[in-house]
């Protein structure tokens, strides 16, 4: 087996599309769980069957989120450029979620501190993640220039 054969075998784990799909799954799972949780928390007097359905939706969302975290930490970790893209996607998704949670709590005139707190935590985590990803990429770009790498 030569190097080109090996690169062919590594095509799947190196695929940027696969990384992007995993990041989108992570955000989708987290977003879905937060939306379902917010609706659940702000809806008064739900029958047990509906509560069970909301609980199932939250669990499914968190399940997908957990799977994506496992893939990104164990199977296909993100390179610096992927981390920045994922950081922006995370910030956009958490901003939308925060707006949604705020809108729901205002429109229903029913405060849901857990949902609001969760949205705030997600927004802060997304912002910190993006700052760290950009700083890591900037450090690598600096080192690349020092080593005389192409622009």
């Amino acid at each position: 087996m030569n190097a080109d054969d090996m690169l062919h075998r590594l095509a799947a784990p190196l695929s940027p599309a696969r990384r992007l799909v995993t990041v989108v799954t992570l955000l989708g799972g987290l977003g879905g769980a937060t939306v379902a949780g917010t609706l659940w928390a702000t809806e008064p007097a739900l029958p047990p069957a509906t509560q069970a359905a909301f609980a199932a939706m939250v669990a499914i969302g968190l399940g997908w989120c957990g799977w994506a975290v496992w893939v990104l930490t164990r199977r296909t970790p993100l390179f610096a450029r992927d981390r920045v893209v994922a950081g922006w996607l995370g910030l956009a998704a958490s901003s939308l979620l925060a707006a949604f949670v705020t809108a729901v709590t205002i429109s229903r005139d029913r405060l849901a501190p857990a949902a609001l707190g969760m949205a705030a935590v997600l927004l802060a985590a997304a912002l910190i993640n993006l700052i760290r990803a950009r700083s890591h990429r900037a450090a690598l770009l600096r080192r690349k220039r020092e080593l005389g790498g192409p622009r």
Partner: peptide
Amino acid sequence: DELLVVRAQLGERDAFAGLVR
């Protein structure tokens, strides 16, 4: 090698291919 590794860590696939070759 160091430059190839740094470029690969940035996400440049041709640099990773260079390391494999």
